[in-house]
Design a protein around this nucleic acid. Sequence first.
DNA 1: ACAAACATACCAACTGGTCGGTATCTTTTA
DNA 2: TAAAAGATACCGACCAGTTGGTATGTTTGT
Lengths: 187, 187
Amino acid sequence: MLVRRQGYAATSVDEICAAAGVSKGAFFHHFASKEELGVAAAEQWTARAEELIFTLPHWVRIEDPLERLLAHIDFRLFMMEGPAEGFTCFVGTMVQESFASSEPLRVASDASISAYCDRLAVDIEAAIARYGISGGVSAISLAYHIQAVLQGAFIIAKAKNSPKEARDSVLHLKRYIKMLFDRGDAK
Amino acid sequence: MLVRRQGYAATSVDEICAAAGVSKGAFFHHFASKEELGVAAAEQWTARAEELIFTLPHWVRIEDPLERLLAHIDFRLFMMEGPAEGFTCFVGTMVQESFASSEPLRVASDASISAYCDRLAVDIEAAIARYGISGGVSAISLAYHIQAVLQGAFIIAKAKNSPKEARDSVLHLKRYIKMLFDRGDAK
DNA sequence: ACAAACATACCAACTGGTCGGTATCTTTTA
DNA sequence: TAAAAGATACCGACCAGTTGGTATGTTTGT
């Protein structure tokens, strides 16, 4: 999506129409405003992410929940290659600009992020149930932390124009998770 | 800064002039373009951050480098209160929109982030020298990880319109650092 | 006197969004 | 069953307002 490269405000409706190969009339027939498109795009993003991360990949069928969680991290790591607009997060980019100027966009972005974290927390919860966790860490808070590291890594990747430092950060995250589940010294 | 609330593209030169109480003519007398202002603002941001984080606070004089590092994290945590535009990062916001469309802005943002991380790595290096660190973690990579968690936490705070989840994420970061330095079980 | 600092008026390009109109598909009615 | 009536999808010219930037003047410090 164009928005991931240049941001929400910098992407004009004309550009979007040209990229999608539709006329401006058609655009405003389907969406009352640019903002409404943003909301719809966020919803579609959520659905696509759910599919791409939690449904399609083969590793989602790993039985052990901790192994599955770590495979998830590896997958995110694997995706972080090439230009940043290829692997960064649409809602993360959008909410950064719009959280104060548009409640609908903020709410839609929040819903997308929350849906991802809630889904991730299910796996984490299962891993905690099986292996226990140190420090009384809650599943949902760890899920949000994972999301935060990823979003932050995206920003680093954009600034550096290279995913190297971003990947290292995700490796730190992986190490942290292993340590939490007492797998730190096993490595 | 206005940019931290609404983003770089969505903040017009007119708005900036009005907020700064100068005329548009004066603006373009000092800066050749909006982009040039962005670069200058990033440089000023770097200087302000250096002062606010590494020079002025009382805790920078803590002798123990690990204690100092943890105090730094606590300070960042302490700052995360109130509306997001009050504690989020200017260059982080700017680079997200401009990394692909403006090399000068990307480079300036990168320089700001790198300066922070390089400075932070000095303290981390000292802490490693004194206490050692598990997993062969490098100081600079941990510094980037800290930066990533903060940037990611800012996005979560914006999406949630509340710093709660963001603070939790920084607490995870603090726990991770303690664990790396073998202070995990001391808590 | 002269340049730097600043202000005012202005511009062409672009912004999100509207509008009148057309083509096509669905439903109603006799 | 087929014409009439209505809805839906779509187009592209157009609009008022805003954008970054400029041209031209006025003030100020030395």
